[in-house]
Amino acid sequence: MNKGAASGIMEALWGWPPPVFDPAGPYASSVTTLAWVLLALGVAVTGIVIAALYVAIKGPERWRKKLGGEKAVWIGGIAFPAVVLTGLLIWGLALTASLTEPIRGREARVRVTGEMWWFRVEYLDPAGRVIVRDANELHLPLDRPVVLELRSADVVHSIWIPHLSGKMDMVPGRINQLRVEASRTGRFGGVCAEYCGGPHALMGFVTQVHEAADYDRWLAARAARQAQPVAAGATPGRPGAVVRDPAEPQRYDPALGWTLFRDTGCAACHRIAGTEANGLAGPDLTHVGSRLSLGAGILPNHRGTMIGWIADSQSIKPGNRMPSYDRLSAEELGHIAAFLEAQK
């Protein structure tokens, strides 16, 4: 289950130790090393400046002269920063070079596309064909490097999962690569780290790390569901997945929910594999029933948030590109939510 409101974003930015100092994999570790060194240098320089200030105000006459002399400016103002910053740049680039290494062998590949204001996620096979379409969450195998192929559909976005890797821009018309690897299982939050307009601050996602064998099973199951042929008439979903909740006999009907979904126009923007719904303007909803969040990492996923989002996403995430459906009745929203919950 979900930890809470703004969960993906909260998990990326909050916590103790702070996520940047709590790496969960080798790529993030090198970023953490860099962060500590920068912090230490920052503290050292601040210390030196404070000491110099003290000397300048209260120090003995002879010291003050020296501090104000030309030599001090040459050393402290030019030589020191030039040497330290150059060294830091070279060392930092070398340390983090591994993050952007191109694909070497059979690393898993996932294409992540920044969209205003959510993340399109596509799992690729070794030949680069899309086998699973998803959104707003990334599933990773434990201890295996994964190469993210980063694109943008509109403006510049940036992807940042502090526990797992560095920050990398998603630039329109370019493909950037970023490696991630996790050495412990669990959930890690991510955010868009480049202002991209409107509800940018509500653009996040969730990463889930599985044991390698679990990941393989998970991916195979999803790929099978995605390859399901279009079955006219039938209510979509994994076979057997559309069961009525015994606690709520017949109140909300997933089959009716599907009809409403199709006829209300949701299908024009959302795809559900194996159905006529093949819209691409919004997140793929084939697996929305097991999504770890709603609204791009900002809401937990349950019946209440699902209805709240569909009825009035514009209040929750002002400016996002899905209209609010306040014209749907509470009953209709219940049927649609029951249908979407069954899309695992």
């Binding site: 937990p300 209040s315 609010s324």
Partner: peptide, 23 residues
């Protein structure tokens, strides 16, 4: 209330976000 996000349907005093309009 924050964890389960009652705010996705209700505006609730003391909860800054979300303040949904479904209820």
């Amino acid at each position: 209330i924050e964890r389960v996000s009652c705010g996705s349907c209700h505006a609730i005093p003391g909860i800054d976000w979300p303040r949904g309009g479904a209820a």
